[in-house]
């Protein structure tokens, strides 16, 4: 046997190489199929089957932070899904609850989960539960009570509670200067769309995430629509008081000089007069926000 790096060994390499390529391709292809076939239930359930935080805390030995980080990575993906179900959000909530048991100082997890659950998921109680848990372990972080304030004010329509949390936030180090004034407005002018608008704007400035910000812009537009509707209904009342009957259309308010012009509807719809009841509705706003109907400082749920 002539032991030279000749054609024989080149052929050998080629053969081995192509065998490996074929096997590798087959493995990757199968992985794609498996991934696709993995039932959605199983995928989402990965989070639901997390052990209780108190057990996990012991089980991960000294590696609590990294364990928390890993669970966070999983939870973040569930937050990020475009199409999200309440179930999915609840799983994510469970995950964050567990991971903050493992690492109670993980403040960004409380914050992000708190905002997402409040702003997107319409799960204010879960949001508040996480945020107040965060406050217990991290009493110095002003953002946590600030977000609780949001949940109370906007999602639970409880300006009194909202103001209470804003005041807690305002006393913490690093809290922005506008907080005490905002807290005062919450109580005094509860239900005032302008106060709500300011709160939303402040929150908007706090958040970096574009998609969260989009949601807030949407909320702000809804508040503006609500404010416009209220303005127009006031015009209708004045019209009725002056002429003893309801106007035939909103344009009558302008032609009779009661208002200068009909504001532009920010959501892309138009304002319409419900002639039978004398109320105004927006075609862009699916339902009027309950919070703004409560003129006096009280609340109802």
């Amino acid at each position: 046997m002539k032991l030279k790096a000749g054609t024989e060994s080149v052929a050998g390499w080629l053969l081995t190489g192509s065998l490996l390529l074929v096997l590798g391709g087959a493995a990757a292809g199968t992985l794609a199929v498996v991934e696709h076939q993995r039932p959605a239930m199983v995928r989402a359930a990965e989070l639901a089957f997390l052990p209780k935080g108190e057990y996990l805390r012991v089980a991960v030995l000294g590696y609590r932070q990294i364990a928390a980080d890993l669970i966070w990575l999983k939870a973040v993906q569930h937050f990020g899904e475009r199409k999200q179900t309440t179930e999915g959000y609840l799983w994510a909530y469970h995950a964050v609850d567990v991971l903050t048991d493992v690492d109670p100082k993980f403040t960004s997890a409380y914050q992000a989960a708190g905002v997402v659950l409040g702003v997107w998921a319409n799960l204010p109680e879960e949001s508040i539960a996480l945020l107040t848990k965060g406050m217990r372990h991290n009493p110095d972080v002003w953002q946590l009570p600030f977000y609780v304030g949001y949940d109370y004010f906007y999602e639970l329509h409880d300006p009194v509670q909202a103001a209470k949390y804003l005041r807690i936030a305002s006393e913490l180090p690093g809290a922005p200067a506008y907080l005490p004034k905002l807290a005062a407005r919450m109580t005094v002018e509860a239900g005032d769309p302008d106060a709500a608008l300011e709160f939303l704007q402040r929150l908007y400035q706090q958040l970096q995430d574009e998609r969260l910000r989009e949601s807030l812009v949407q909320r702000m537009k809804e508040v503006i629509a609500e404010r416009d509707i209220r303005f127009l209904e006031e015009g209708v009342r004045r019209y009725k008081a002056r002429y003893g009957k309801l106007p035939a259309s909103l344009n009558d308010l302008v032609t009779k000089g009661i208002i200068q012009q009909i504001p532009e509807e920010p959501l892309g719809g138009v304002y319409e007069l419900k002639a039978s009841e004398g109320t105004v509705a927006s075609t862009g706003l699916r339902q009027r926000l309950r919070v703004h109907r409560h003129y006096t400082g009280g609340f109802s749920r």
Binding site: A27, T30, L31, V33, V34, Q37, R38, P39, M41, V42, A45, F49
Partner: peptide
């Protein structure tokens, strides 16, 4: 929890 997966999934996963 007693939640089984379809046999086809098991087969594909094993094959992988």
């Amino acid at each position: 929890m007693g939640a089984s997966v379809p046999l086809s999934y098991q087969a594909w996963a094993s094959a992988y």
